[in-house]
Simulated assay, not measured.
Amino acid sequence: MRFGIVVNEGPYTHQASDTAYHFTKAVLAGGHEVFRVFFYHDGVNNGTRYTVPPQDDRNLQKLWSELAEQHGIDLVVCIAAAQRRGILDESEAKRHGKSGDNIAPGFRISGLGQLIEAGIEADRLVVFGD
Rank of each mutant, 00 (worst) to 15 (best):
S110L: 06
F39G: 02
R95V: 09
G97A: 08
G47I: 11
G97I: 02
P11I: 01
G72S: 07
E69I: 10
S17I: 00
P54A: 01
I5Y: 10
V127T: 13
G113S: 09
G119T: 06
I5C: 08
G119I: 01
Q83W: 14
I87L: 00
G100A: 14
N46T: 05
L67R: 03
F107C: 04
A29N: 13
E92Y: 12
Q114P: 01
V34A: 07
G47M: 09
P53F: 03
Q15L: 09
V34W: 08
W64A: 00
V6A: 02
S17K: 04
G30N: 15
L125N: 05
G86F: 09
G119M: 06
D130L: 14
P105W: 07
E121R: 15
I103F: 04
Y12I: 06
K94C: 00
D56Q: 14
R85W: 11
V37Y: 03
L63A: 11
R58G: 07
G97T: 08
A93N: 10
D101H: 12
D42C: 10
S99N: 14
E117S: 12
T13L: 08
A122L: 02
D74I: 09
V6F: 03
I103V: 14
I120G: 07
H22K: 11
F128I: 06
R2A: 06
P11V: 00
Y21Q: 03
P53M: 00
Q61C: 12
T19Q: 12
E69W: 12
R2F: 03
L88D: 06
N102P: 03
I116K: 12
T24C: 09
I79L: 10
G111E: 05
V7F: 07
T24L: 05
E121Y: 11
A118H: 02
C78M: 07
S65W: 08
C78S: 06
G10Q: 00
R84T: 04
V126A: 04
Y40M: 02
C78I: 01
I109N: 05
V76W: 07
D101W: 09
T48I: 09
R85D: 10
G43C: 02
S91L: 14
I116R: 10
E33T: 13
S65D: 06
